[in-house]
């Protein structure tokens, strides 16, 4: 934990002074970033999706919904989203994930970003109880848990706020959340609503 804190202090100091290890970065460098080079209709080799079957060290073994088996390597630089950015220890067996990275010659996916249990749902709110939104998605019932301090609301496309009290029963909303595996329950990350 001490090393994490030290590292954070170093990075904070660097950010506030604006140091850069790449020398000067001109805008054209950013535009010269590698283009997306997957043929139309072909599977993207740098993407993986599925449920976690086993975890060994920092490797994830994932079976895709199309039957393809993926080996995914997670590193210090990999972003892991599970309701919020988390570290690797929060990833659990049985979780679903989407991962993007670079496919190694031996088939291993060196992950750059991993989104765990992420769902994106268009629903209508059928009822609201204490820190819970009861939602319906084409007639299926979904229970959405509000996590004060984490859950955010975006009203009419304005900047996200923590206050959810403008949500109304019967209204349609779009919800980004983290699925609780094998249930109809999610933890809500963001609600997009019109008010």
């Amino acid at each position: 934990m001490t090393t994490t804190l030290d590292r954070r202090q170093v990075l904070t100091a660097a950010a506030l002074t604006g140091a850069t290890a790449f020398g000067s970065l001109a805008p054209e460098d950013a535009l010269a970033a590698p283009a997306f080079d997957v043929a139309p209709g072909a599977p993207d080799p740098n993407f993986a999706e599925g449920r976690i079957k086993s975890i060994e060290g920092s490797k994830l073994f994932v079976s895709g919904s199309d039957g393809v088996f993926h080996r995914i390597q997670v590193t210090e630089g990999t972003s892991i989203w599970k309701l919020t950015p988390v570290d690797f220890s929060k990833v659990a067996l049985g979780d679903g994930l989407y991962a993007r990275g670079v496919r190694m010659p031996d088939g291993l996916l060196a992950a750059e970003s991993v989104w765990v249990n992420i769902v994106n749902l268009e629903v209508h709110i059928s009822s609201i109880s204490h820190n819970v939104l009861h939602m319906e998605h084409f007639g299926s019932k979904i229970v959405g848990h509000v996590r004060p301090g984490i859950t955010a609301s975006v009203y009419n496309g304005t900047p996200a706020v923590s206050d959810m009290s403008l949500l109304k029963v019967g209204k349609h909303v779009k919800v980004i959340g983290a699925w609780r595996p094998d249930t109809n329950e999610i933890d809500i990350a963001t609600v997009y609503a019109a008010v």
Binding site: S129, N131, V146, P148, S153, S162, D163, M164, L167, T190
Partner: peptide, 11 residues
Amino acid sequence: PLADTATGDIP
């Protein structure tokens, strides 16, 4: 029921 969320925290 959602009063707990009006904390003023910045998400």
